[in-house]
Amino acid sequence: MAEAAAIRIRGLRVVRKKVLVIPGLDVDVAAGAITGLLGPSGCGKSTLMRAIVGVQIVESGSVEVLGLPAGSADLRHRVGYMTQEPSVYSDLTVRENLAHFARIYGVDQGNVDRAIDRVDLGSKADTVVSDLSGGQHSRVSLAASLVGEPDLLVLDEPTVGLDPVLRRDLWALFRSLASSGTTLLVSSHVMEEAVHCDRLLLMRDGHMLADGVRDDLLAATGAADIEAAFLALVEQEDGR
């Protein structure tokens, strides 16, 4: 299963807000695995994710998700998307937010409790979101993308700003989702997050510097960690 591609992108070219963000990209994302999309902020990670979930106007190229063109109506049940800014209603409680998204998915309210448990917000379920801390706020946003139990989760910087304990718990959650067959694409600008991923996409200026398994990237560059590997690849690219 891990060899099959959940996402297949060919010749993707995206202009976002009048800036050429992705000039031409070919990439595959493996099914049933955690793929880390790593790169500095502004390199095009969010734009790529928006193209995958079908909310980005694409200039050319094809984006195929679970065998269908990105943004197809049939995919909307199967893809969960967490935007970088927490996109939930800050004037509603945690439970009201998730209940709303559950109604849209047409799943029962048991999914709401499960999603709340998964992000460990049980004690805050009836708190209005604007009264939560920043990290809790972003976990509500994560829970909203889990509530429909999608086959593909596209998570834009889900662990940013969280304390180490929570970050560990979230990666454990991602791992358990992946082992039950969910495909995860998780972006981060923190290179250390690479250790939690099955595969890595290192992105820079709208293209992929590297695509592969962490150990292979380390071996190929002779670097001790992914941050050093990234730098080595950047130097190699600029030196050309």
């Binding site: 928006r50 979930v53 079908g54 909310v55 109506a73 909307r76 800014e85 209603y89 849209i104 047409g106």
Partner: peptide, 13 residues
Amino acid sequence: TSGTLERLMSLPI
């Protein structure tokens, strides 16, 4: 502006 519309537009609504 809050991104909730962007999320909704990726959902079956």
